[in-house]
């Protein structure tokens, strides 16, 4: 559904996206992860033909966006982090206006979409009277108007309260289940991505550092909770002995390949440390993401602008 081939985008001297290759298959919920400013929105902007790639190819729904934007975006809907509307007009009028940039849309279709997102009864009120959640629903309604096959969601949970986030999550799942949409979700809310997406790509400083299934990513990093007399010194000793690969500031360690927890405990006890607790933690996308960011940070080429992006495959790095 979406194919990015070695796409690079430079804003002057700054490289926003570097040599990005990405494939989003039909029918999947694909997560695009990264810090703020990692290049996610720029990548989505290029998919929508709003940002011109410096080099590379962006194919959406089988058409090159830069050459045939009209055909590429005919069946695409998008939602941005802070959806903007004509606040002085009603929700209905906003939908009429935005729909006219795609194709003539019947009143019946607009009503249908309003019902679907649950805005019925408020569609003729001015948008400036809408709550944040209602604006999010209106944003969803405008995205659904052209009967899309593909939905691009750029930080759709931004500014929503926990209830709104929950509602948005259910809506995304419903869109996928009932309408069979392919969804690309850009977010830095790892918990959300973990619950929604089947596959993810992680972008750091404009480079893709991982692409693969969420389940695989979650399996890839196993953190152990370790409580000792002095965690920092214990970890330093464990590292020196080659038993631990990495650690976090929250009493978490990642064991080296082939090392079991009993070896770690034995080593610590023999080294004079009291081990109060060691337990395997549930593997989360967050843990994977953080370890990935640390790995990328420690790799000197990750911050260089010119060298090619090290696309890490989970199976050959872990």
């Amino acid at each position: 559904m979406i194919h990015l081939r070695s796409v690079t985008k430079r804003f002057g001297a700054r490289v926003a996206v570097q040599d990005l290759t990405l494939d989003v298959k039909s029918g999947e919920i694909f997560g695009l992860l990264g810090h703020n400013g990692a290049g996610k929105s720029t990548a989505i902007g290029m998919m929508l033909g709003q940002v011109w790639p410096t080099s590379g190819e962006v194919i959406v729904c089988g058409h090159d966006v830069t050459r045939n934007r009209r055909r590429a975006l005919e069946r695409v809907g998008a939602i941005f982090e802070t959806p903007a509307f004509y606040d002085y007009l009603s929700g209905w009028n906003n939908l009429v206006i935005l729909a006219s940039y795609t194709a003539p849309t019947s009143k019946q279709r607009i009503k249908e979409v309003i019902d679907w997102v649950g805005l019925s009864g408020r569609e003729h009120s001015r948008v400036k009277t809408y709550s944040h959640g209602m604006r999010a629903r209106l944003a969803l309604a405008q995205a659904l108007l052209p009967k899309p096959d593909l939905l691009l969601l750029d930080e759709p949970n931004e500014g929503l309260d926990p209830e709104g986030i929950h509602e948005m999550r259910q809506t995304i799942l419903r869109l996928h289940r009932e309408l069979g949409l392919t969804i690309l979700l850009s977010s830095h809310l790892l918990h959300e991505v973990q619950q929604l997406c089947t596959r993810i790509a992680v972008i750091r400083s404009g480079r893709k550092v991982y692409e693969g299934p969420v389940a695989e990513a979650r399996r890839s990093t196993i953190w152990w909770r370790l409580v000792t007399d002095n965690f920092d010194i214990a970890v330093a000793r464990l590292r020196a002995a080659g038993l631990v690969k990495s650690s976090t500031g929250q009493n978490q360690i990642e064991l080296a390949d082939g090392v079991a927890s009993d070896r770690v405990v034995r080593f610590l006890v023999e080294s004079g440390f009291n081990v109060h607790e060691i337990a395997r933690e549930e593997s989360t996308l967050e843990a994977f993401y953080l370890s990935l960011m640390r790995d990328a940070e420690s790799a000197p080429e990750a911050n260089a602008d010119i060298s090619p992006a090290p696309t890490t495959n989970i199976s050959n790095t872990r």
Binding site: Q50, R69, R70, L73, E74, F80, A84, F85, L98
Partner: peptide, 18 residues
């Protein structure tokens, strides 16, 4: 400035026509 241009330009309308 308001962000509505971005909403319009995620539609398949050409910039010249707009």
């Amino acid at each position: 400035e308001d962000g509505t241009l971005r909403m319009i330009l995620c539609r398949p309308v050409s910039r010249v026509r707009l």
